[in-house]
Design a protein around this nucleic acid. Structure first.
Length: 353
DNA sequence: AAGGCGTGGAC
DNA sequence: TGTCCAAGCCT
């Protein structure tokens, strides 16, 4: 019984702090599940500051789930361009079509049905169910892991199977069932603004008197995370075709990173390769067999593009050719295609030359 | 279950 | 500079 009192105090303290300190964010003005869904997908592994402009763009272009569903995937990906984790956009679009075509346009209104949407996992289903439908399902995101690991001094790795289960159960015990949406947003906002990863504001924290990590001087060690990712190096050689009549060619990526985005014809290698190797490569021969071409490296040294899990070193080879029916994309239309930030950065440089 | 999947801000 | 990691999900 004493523990229950503590639980209620925990939630009440968080919610009280939240109501006084919450940021004024656009998705906090609505309980429309479509908009909440949109915001939650955009904010997966993404900071509010980075996602905000995309939220406004999507609300403006797709004010309803029907409008999103009837758009082309290319349009959706183009609007998503620059935000990363593009499977979010593909799944968002897929699920919009599912809602319109299979659910008669009615957004699912329970955790169990919301989580059936592609791209929606335990976190997002809990967020939508609690915020929009007042279902008492606890969210566990990076903020919640941190707040709980510190407050209860838990050193189970948060990305282990055991940790995922343990923290979900704990979060579920702590939720205020009468106030689940606000509770969930409160603990996340608290983690983002007070119990920050670096330099948390423990001195002024409303929970500092009962925080076990603070009492045990473990704040900096928590939460524990295991399995550091290994970074692999990749070497990209893009064939930037420039015909005499100002045409070029883009191709759609068919696997791995940047799936369904567009890029120039690509020769990839495990180690850097030189111009001779490019010219002798099959892809090059396919495109330029018997054509009179000149080849020039655009960048002076390989351009590093660092992702969280791989480093891509890129050369952009500008290849000038006579007009050919093989190359029929006008340079003026190139901005209609969704491309990676790597390609986008190149295009900005190239066009100003 | 472990690895793939982006980008950019903070320190 | 490198390192961490952010309202995670999928396979």
């Amino acid at each position: 019984m004493h523990f229950n009192v503590t639980i209620m105090k925990f939630s009440k303290t968080l919610v009280q702090w939240y109501l006084q300190n919450k940021r004024d964010l656009p998705w906090r003005k609505t309980q429309n599940p479509y908009y909440i869904w949109l915001s939650e997908i955009i904010l997966q592994q993404t900071r509010v500051d980075q996602g905000m402009a995309y939220y406004f763009k999507f609300v403006e272009h797709f004010s309803t789930v029907e409008k999103l569903a009837s758009a082309s995937e290319e349009k959706v990906l183009k609007l998503w361009q620059g935000l990363g984790y593009y499977s979010r956009a593909r799944n968002l679009h897929f699920s919009a079509k599912y809602i319109v075509n299979e659910l008669n346009g009615d957004f699912p209104d329970t955790y169990n049905n919301i989580i059936k949407l592609k791209g929606v996992g335990d976190y997002t289903a809990s967020a939508i169910a609690s915020i929009c439908f007042n279902e008492a399902t606890a969210v566990v995101d990076g903020n919640v892991y941190r707040v709980l690991a510190r407050y209860f001094n838990i050193n189970t790795p948060i990305n282990s199977t055991k940790g995922i289960k343990e923290f979900k159960i704990l979060a579920q015990e702590l939720i205020d069932p009468k106030n689940s949406g606000t509770h969930n947003q409160a603990i996340m906002e608290f983690g983002a603004r007070m119990c920050k990863p670096q330099n948390p504001d423990c001195e002024i924290c409303p929970l500092n008197a009962s925080c076990l990590a603070l009492a045990n001087n473990k704040v900096k060690e928590l939460p524990v995370k295991e399995n550091k990712i290994k970074i692999r190096n990749r070497y990209f050689n893009y064939l930037v075709i420039q015909t005499e009549d100002d045409k070029t060619t883009l191709v759609k990526r068919e696997k791995g990173i940047w799936l369904n985005l567009y890029e120039f014809p690509l020769i990839e290698s495990l180690q850097p390769i030189d111009e001779k190797a490019i010219i002798e490569h099959e892809v090059f021969k396919e495109f330029f067999n018997k054509l009179n071409v000149s080849i020039q490296l655009f960048n002076s040294s390989m351009l590093p593009h660092k992702l969280s899990h791989q480093h891509i070193f890129t050369n952009f080879w500008v290849i000038k050719t006579p007009a050919s029916s093989k190359f029929n994309l006008n340079w003026s239309e190139i901005n209609n295609f969704p491309v990676s930030t790597l390609i986008d950065n190149f295009l900005k440089q190239y066009k100003t030359n």
